[in-house]
Design a protein around this nucleic acid. Structure first.
Length: 230
DNA sequence: CAAGCGATTGGCT
DNA sequence: GCCAATCGCTTGT
């Protein structure tokens, strides 16, 4: 075993790996680990292998939140790479992005799917929590939510950006967090030494049709087709 | 200050 | 395959 167990702390994730072109950063992030330390809500460590991402690149990108220039919401996209950009979509779902590119250039990689490596049950518990929390669509009772999620296979617990965020307990308070700080409760780590790279295909991004031709069609969604079936 | 709308999901027509 | 749920951000009056 190379990592994941107590012992030697893993080497810090190098910020330079995310400071170059965002498509390079996106490829670099495939296979990386997303780690959430135990907290007072979920008592086990959660670790996942990133298998699907999308790139949002610059103010020119008509599908990016940076398309209208700097605003209160997107301001961290203009900062240094490796910072978490978290926002609420459709009034109910959170999405987690990793800021990329040099400071001043607004770009980010949306983390869309991970496969659990450790703490799958904790991810399931976090999703149950989310389903029964206040202001939620269904306001399911805990029993119903637990029963529904019990039927979700481990491999699908964090497939889809909102499911990933829920499984890792990501909320708006995580916006601006440094994901490359080894002391951060939510962070990135490199894949274990010797692990095969993620096999991926590139295709157009999801849900950005309104960006128009020339932007909506760009193949800036990278995914492992085995792990993410659609 | 009002209003339209979304980098989604799950359940039902 | 379609559609409702739900609210902060953005823009226009």
């Amino acid at each position: 075993m190379t990592s994941g167990r107590p012992g030697r702390p893993p080497p810090p994730y190098p910020r330079a790996a995310l400071a170059g072109p965002t498509l390079d950063a996106a490829r670099e992030l495939l296979g990386a680990r997303l780690v959430r330390d135990p907290d007072d809500r979920v008592a086990a460590r959660r670790v996942g292998r990133i298998v699907e991402v999308e790139a949002y690149i610059g103010e020119e990108d008509r599908a990016s939140h940076a398309r209208m220039g700097p605003t209160p919401r997107n301001r961290v996209m203009y900062g240094p790479p490796g910072i978490a950009y978290v926002y609420l979509v459709y009034g109910m779902h959170h999405c987690l992005n990793v800021v990329t590119g040099p400071p001043g250039f607004p770009a980010a990689v949306l983390l869309r799917s991970i496969v659990p490596v450790e703490g799958a049950e904790a991810m399931r518990a976090a999703r149950v929590r989310r389903s029964v929390s206040d202001r939620r669509r269904d306001r399911e009772d805990p029993g119903a939510a637990a029963a529904r999620l019990a039927r979700v296979p481990d491999a699908l617990l964090a497939v889809g950006p909102a499911n990933l965020a829920a499984a890792f307990g990501v909320e708006r308070g995580d916006n601006g967090l440094d994901l490359l700080d080894p002391a951060s409760p939510l962070r990135l780590e490199r894949p274990p030494e010797g692990e095969s790279p993620v096999t991926f295909v590139a295709s157009p991004r999801i849900g950005v049709e309104r960006a128009g031709p020339g932007w909506a069609d760009r193949p800036w969604r990278l995914r492992d087709p085995e792990a993410v079936r659609r």
